[in-house]
């Protein structure tokens, strides 16, 4: 047993070292492409950290978002950045020279001080603290689900999740209000990409449904399922997916607001019936939560894919 603990301890220390050096390299490497590759690697290792911290729900979300979608988003942005304007290099590098030693050393000293101060604060926290574990355990039977994280997300603190859906929608509204229609790229002529897509997209959708369903009892749930669905959407967009213009107006908008809409309507209905915001009747809580999660999954998937597109989508047929 001791040897096992030792091996795990070694694993932890190596992992911490890797994560920290990756973060530092993301900040310090000169090349932006390299920084993004390192950031994706950082996300992968963060998912391992979540596993070590017994947080498989977060590991799933991180695997889908931190290591997957964010990387794809950054890569696409870098791609467009270099196609927009290659002249900036000169001006920026000229400005870099002006950065004197003091403007780098002072923040570095501040960084060390912050780490020391916060570290001291952390170490003076009590060794053992239960947090809200007992409260969650006590009320699990009334929550309608068996996975404690899902119970917190959709029931105990469901109101936060409602507002979170609004945040997601707001990000998209803000992106769209920046203007600019983005044409869906032409269907890719690359046969490898096409066949990859044909295999991967159905699998991703299937996995998404699985995560949604399993989320009630085991790690998984709407956010993870939605992220995987969003990844399927990103893959379709990358391979030049073709949608008719008519689906891009009303139906798309409807799916985008479905998650927050169902949440708000459910909240209002429960307020009328139960006299409380998002107070589920215990017997019905299970399917109500599943309904909310299904709507949220669709919206999250659609929103993430639309965010990846980065503008109001427009089909090429119209051109």
């Amino acid at each position: 047993m001791e040897a096992l603990d030792f091996a795990l301890g070694l694993f932890d220390i190596l992992l911490v070292f890797l994560v920290l050096s990756l973060a530092w390299l993301v900040m310090s490497s000169e090349d932006l492409f390299r920084a993004i590759v390192l950031f994706v690697a950082f996300g992968l290792l963060m998912a391992l950290v979540w596993v070590r911290l017994e947080a498989p729900d977060i590991a799933l979300a991180e695997a889908a978002i931190g290591a997957g979608l964010t990387g794809a988003l950054m890569m696409a942005a870098l791609d467009r950045l270099s196609s927009v304007k290659p002249i900036q290099k000169v001006a920026a590098s000229a400005q870099r020279k002006q950065l004197s030693l003091s403007s780098k050393v002072l923040p570095l000293i501040a960084l060390v001080l912050i780490v020391l101060g916060l570290g001291y604060a952390l170490l003076s926290l009590p060794e053992i603290a239960d947090g809200l574990t007992p409260n969650v355990k006590e009320n699990m039977a009334q929550s309608g689900v068996k996975n404690p994280v899902t119970a917190v997300l959709l029931n105990f603190r469901g109101y936060d999740t409602l507002l979170e859906m609004v945040v997601l929608l707001l990000a998209l509204l803000s992106v769209w209000s920046l203007g600019g229609e983005r044409k869906l790229s032409p269907r890719s002529t690359n046969p490898i990409l096409g066949s990859l897509c044909r295999v991967l997209v159905p699998v991703l959708i299937l996995v998404s449904c699985y995560l949604l369903w399993v989320g009630a009892d085991a790690p998984g749930g709407a956010f993870q399922a939605g992220s995987v669905l969003g990844a399927a959407g990103v893959l379709l967009l990358l391979s030049g997916w073709h949608v008719e213009q008519k689906y891009l107006l009303w139906p798309l908008r409807f799916i985008l607001i479905l998650g927050s809409g169902v949440f708000i309507i459910m909240a209002a209905v429960l307020l009328l019936i139960q006299g409380g915001l998002l107070t589920y009747p215990v017997a019905q809580a299970g399917w109500m939560i599943l309904l909310l999660e299904s709507a949220a999954t669709l919206s999250i998937g659609a929103t993430l894919a639309a965010l990846f597109l980065g503008g109001v989508p427009k089909s090429r047929v119209d051109q």
């Binding site: 992968l44 889908a64 979608l69 990387g71 699998v203 993870q224 893959l235 990358l238 391979s239």
Partner: peptide
Amino acid sequence: VFALLAAVTAV
């Protein structure tokens, strides 16, 4: 999920 998403990032 890792394996699947790795493919998406690869693309």
